[in-house]
Amino acid sequence: MANEKKNEWPLWEVFIRAKHGLSHRHAGSVHAPDADIALRHARDTYTRRMEGVSIWVIRSSDIAASDPADAGPIFEPAESKVYRHPTFYVVPDHIKHI
């Protein structure tokens, strides 16, 4: 990794599942020499107050991210396509949770 300083532990992104049935959500990041220690650091850093039932960690360098400079071409084309939102349906009154 070009941008990792020598003698520094790599960075890991931490995802926590708060309870069964929910998705893992990004909680933050930790430094650790490898995946096993990263899980332990994630546990000690992000689940000390019973925040989780499951932890994922992934090397930050393994995440491919969209380039903010390309936000225009990537995201703006969706703005003019309101027909993709299901807002044209009439929802019957007795349907509560939608």
Binding site: W9, V30, H31, R40, H41, D44, R48
Partner: peptide
Amino acid sequence: PALEADLSLTN
């Protein structure tokens, strides 16, 4: 040696 190790030991 690192913030994370600090938290581990104090935990």
